[in-house]
Nucleic acid binder design. Structure first.
Length: 483
RNA sequence: GGUGCUGUAGGCAAAUUGGUAAAGCCGUCGAUCUUUCAAGUCGAUGUUUGUGGGUUCAACUCCCAUCAGCACUGCCA
């Protein structure tokens, strides 16, 4: 039997990192076993589901490289299937209509809480007589459909991550609602637990891999599988991703959606790599890998049981590792959108080579792609402001002369076609002025960059020279040095 | 309140069936390289596996108790 797994996001928000990590594990497991990875959009909640979220989710999965083999399927298009299943349960006496109003249910729960009892449906409508039913209908009440859960039933399964799991029927909250309220001659909107089981069965899902917040649902779903006469898949409940205080990472924790990470300048391979490391550890302890490389090694034996706190430092480090490895030609493609968004002045067509060199210069010092905005800022404008430290440097003894001499060479048409030429010019000035190279370099850094730190000076100078920004900057620096 | 799950250094984690705990990574600190920053390289730092018992020659691994955290407890998914 081939492995078939699925990711079943609900389009009630953008692709969340928790969902994405679950998708990663599913994808890895499918790839490892040469199985299929299916995308199913769980949009049975028509109130909260939105098409733009579906778009965000599919785009995010694609961006991460989590390509699916089948789908996307939409639950909203499969309602007949669910209604048939519900009808079957009704016909077999495994489900029934309950006429409780929300006020009645609320009153029941508050009473239970007051008595320090666990809130649960007390199955009060499980054995309604025909007369009672007609009476409720006469009142104009609608009915939900509840699936019977026997209190004395014990549900057990072997979880691929957690091992033996046991759940008592009485702890499942009473007979569960599987269809929303509707008039008695119809079946209302099917609910999550029912739809999931029908779909997983219909799609021949062999392994259900999801977050551990679904453990209680699993017990309920197993009962539904049995009632519907299908084989029960295997389950793997993965640990949750936690915030710094140890709670399930949620929207309240700030950045949690994949598209946000993307905007912030994280690369897909680094993010995917990091998500894989959250809860799983590779057998060879090599922590830098692609999803493709991880797949052959992936198994639930090495998935941790405890939740994992999200760590920005490590994500940053992973991202920087990917960035430092990228060739300039590849890097420039990733950086250009950020420079464009920042409104920097360049023409992609004519400046491509120049931009590529710049990307190569900045690459090794980038942590996030967005860092290229700040780090690249002064390459895109003819002149810039001078920092305090730079100004101080420019006003040191001998600096005005040194800059004037350099300026003179440039104006005399000194050619700066290569790094060697720049270096030659530097040593010429150093020799002629009888100064230390350090003073020359620091002063030129101050003059050209307006700051005392930044990327390699020689390379930066060459890049600036290609845009003819070095001359005006030098002029301005001389003025500053003499003031 | 109930049920379930989890508990190894600041974070992620490793440790085949009990057999020298903390490998590896991030972080932090330092050194080094360099015109600077970052990167890189090298080195240092963390201390007994939530706690208390028990079984055993031997326990992170097994048993009991206890504490804490988290998750779930919807006509959301």
């Amino acid at each position: 039997m081939t492995v078939r797994v699925r990711i079943a996001p609900s389009p009630t928000g953008n692709l969340h990192i928790g969902t994405a990590r679950t998708a990663v594990f599913n994808w890895l497991f499918a790839r490892h076993h040469g199985g299929q990875f299916i995308l199913r959009v769980e949009d049975t909640d028509t109130e909260r589901s939105r098409p733009e979220f579906t778009d965000n989710i599919t785009a995010g999965l694609e961006w991460l490289g989590l390509t699916w083999d089948e789908g996307p399927f939409f639950q909203s298009q499969r309602l007949d299937l669910y209604r048939q299943a519900i009808q079957t349960l009704l016909d077999h006496g495994l489900a029934y209509r309950a006429y409780d109003t929300s006020a009645e249910l609320e009153a029941m729960r508050t009473a239970q809480k007051a008595k320090k009892q666990a809130p649960r449906y007390d199955n009060r409508h499980r054995h309604l007589t025909d007369d009672q039913q007609r009476a409720f209908e006469a009142e104009g009440r609608q009915a939900v459909i509840r699936f019977k859960i026997a209190d004395d039933r014990t549900v057990q399964w072997h979880d691929l991550v957690r091992g033996a799991m046991t759940w008592q029927g009485s702890d499942l909250g009473g007979d569960m609602v599987i269809a929303r309220a509707s008039s008695v001659d119809s079946i209302g909107q099917p609910l999550y637990n029912l739809a999931v089981v029908v779909d997983d069965q219909d799609m021949d899902i062999t392994h259900v891999i999801r977050g551990e917040d679904h453990i209680a649902n699993t017990a309920k779903q197993i009962l539904l599988y049995e009632a519907l006469g299908g084989t029960v898949p295997q389950f793997a409940h993965t640990p949750l991703i936690l915030n710094p205080s140890g709670q399930k990472l949620s929207k309240r924790d700030g950045v949690t959606s994949i598209s946000d990470f993307q905007k912030m300048g994280f690369t897909a391979p680094a993010l995917a790599n990091y998500m894989t490391l959250l809860g799983w550890s590779p057998p060879d302890s090599e922590e830098l890998f692609t999803l493709e490389a991880a797949a052959p090694q992936f198994s639930f034996d090495r998935v941790n049981k405890a939740g994992a706190k999200f760590d920005w430092d490590k994500l940053d480090w992973l991202n920087s590792q990917y960035l430092h490895d990228r060739p300039a030609s590849e890097l420039v493609e990733m950086l250009v959108p950020y420079w464009q968004a920042a409104g920097y002045d360049f023409d992609l067509e004519v400046d491509r080579d120049w931009l590529t060199v710049l990307a190569g210069l900045l690459g090794p010092s980038l942590t996030r792609l967005s860092d290229a905005v700040e780090q690249g800022r002064f390459f895109f404008a003819e002149v810039m402001d001078y920092s305090e430290a730079a100004t101080k440097q420019l006003r040191q003894d001998g600096v005005a002369e040194l800059l004037t001499a350099t300026l003179g060479q440039l104006q005399a048409g000194a050619s700066l076609e290569s790094l060697e030429a720049v270096k030659a010019l530097v040593s010429d000035v150093v020799k002629a002025q009888g100064i230390k190279k350090g003073l020359m370099m620091k002063s030129m850094r101050a003059a050209l960059m307006g700051d005392m730190q930044g990327p390699d000076l020689t390379e930066s100078w060459l890049i600036l020279h290609q845009r003819q920004f070095d001359l005006p900057r030098l002029k301005k620096a001389v003025e500053l040095a003499q003031s």
